[in-house]
Structure formats: C-alpha cells, structure tokens
Amino acid sequence: MALLLEQCLNGVQLGVMLFLLAAGLTLVFGIMGVINLAHGSLYMIGAFAAAWVAARTGSSILALLAGLAAAAAAGMAMEYVVLRRLYARGHLDQVLATFGLILFFNQGMTLLFGRQPLFVDIPPWLGGAVEIIPGVPYPAYRLAIIAMGGLVAFGLWFLIQRTRTGMLVRAGATHRDMVRALGVDIRLLYTLVFGLGALLAGLAGVMAGPIFSVQVGMGEQILIQTFVVIVIGGIGSVRGAMAGALVVGLTDTLARAYLPAALRGVMQGPDADALAAGLASMGVYFLMAVVLLARPRGLFPAHA
C-alpha cells in the first residue's frame, strides 16, 4: 500500500514535468498553428543553464533564475529568427526546420559542455523527506515539484480564463483571423505565448536537473512523451494537457514499477527485467493508440 502510494506520487511528479512541457507546446500549437520539435531543446537549455550556474555559485535560486532566463531567451530568439517565418507554412516545413534546430542545439550543447552528463544536487532546504502518512517518507523535493505543478496549473487557468490577455489567447486559438481583424497586435501575442511556453519548458528543465542527469538528448526523450500527452489530451487544450500528462505519468511509472515483478513470474530474471522495461516504455504509446481509437481528436478537443 505504501509502495503504491509512493509510486502514484512518482507518477504525478512525472506528470507535472510533462504538463509543463505539454502546456507550452499545446498553447503554441493552438494559437500559432506551429508544431515545434525544438521545444525539448528549450527544456535542455534550461537544465544546462541551471546546472552550470548551480555548480558555479552553489545557489539554487540563482540557478532557477538562470535556467528560466536562458530558456526564455533561447525561445524568443528561436521565435524571432526562425519560427516567425514558418507560421504560414505547412506542418512538414515546420517539422523539418525545427528538426534542423534540434541538431544545432544538441551539437551546440555538446560543444559547450561535452558529452558527460552533469549532475545537480537537490537544494539543501528541500533535501529531506516528509512523512505523507505515518511511516511513509517521501522526498520533499519531489513534493515541491508536484506543488509547483499545481501552482503553474492554477496560474495558467487564471491567466487564460480570467484575464484580458487570456481572453485574446482563447480567441486567437479559435478565430485567429478575426482577432487580427479586430486590431489586436497578434505578433506581440505570439511572442508572449511563445515566451511563456519557453519559460515553462525551462522550468521543467531546471526541476528535472536533480532527478534525471542533465545531458544532450534529454529534450527529445521527454518531447516524444509530451507528444503522446498532447495527442491523448487533445491538441490546443491546456485542460487536456493536464489530464493527458497525469494519465501518461501514472501509466509510465506504474508500469515500470509493477511489470518486472509480474513478468518474473513467467520468465527468468534478467530477461524479464529487460522485457519489462521495454514493455513499460511502450505502455504509454499503447495507451495513446487506444485513446485515438475511441476518440481520434483526444480527450478534450480544443476546437470541437
């Protein structure tokens, strides 16, 4: 029971990371119609900047700020130099151009930091464990991630549903040309939304540092899972991103936790572990196939 609770929390924590990426990606797609493969690169840039600053200064606050600033700056630059020219193009061109960006960023990070993964310490004030129910300690850092995810989700909900900017964002997602015709500076809105998405990706990268190792290629690994989240949740919908992220996070974590034991019952140890790891990795894609069979537009289609 304690193990199940712990694994569920781990799943929610992975879900939060996925949500931070998926929210940005889905907003960018919903508003601008751009599919941005290099979104994972922003996550990587945030993680590297934070790891580098943390190693230099030892301050986790400075590291957080550096990670956010680096990701947002890289995101704005990306939008200004490349993506702005691709809004009117087809998805194919967008995929290829941002694929080129991934090669560039990955190799650039290799040039700057080398191929060795960087390791980041958990900030000391989040180092301990908290007893969630008596007798079940859980790392405070992971709880902080979950709390941060809740905070961001609430903030996004407030921003999108309760503010004037959010109203424009919603309007832009459903009737892009009409918003433009009403005299709204759509370019500024685009840059703002893109910057927000980059910021969230950077935040996910900074928080991922102490849990996963910071290395080149970390962005694509999580990006593809983020795609699964978005497809399950419904493209363009933040609510869908939240639901999809939690479903994917829980499925992935629980499959990884319980499949090896289940398979060991029928086959030998090492083979069972390897196969279980593979099946667990496949689990979320299988889930996506099932969801798409039932609802081809995802759970919460934005433009229904």
């Binding site: 151009a97 080129g100 560039f104 190799q107």
Partner: peptide, 14 residues
C-alpha cells in the same frame, strides 16, 4: 558536423 548540418537544413526549408 551536425552543428553545420542543422542550419543548412534550416536554410533549405526556409
């Protein structure tokens, strides 16, 4: 070489 190839692809697409 990917550091060079990436921007080349970008230019080709754009």
């Amino acid at each position: 070489w990917q550091f060079i190839l990436g921007p080349i692809l970008l230019l080709v697409v754009m």
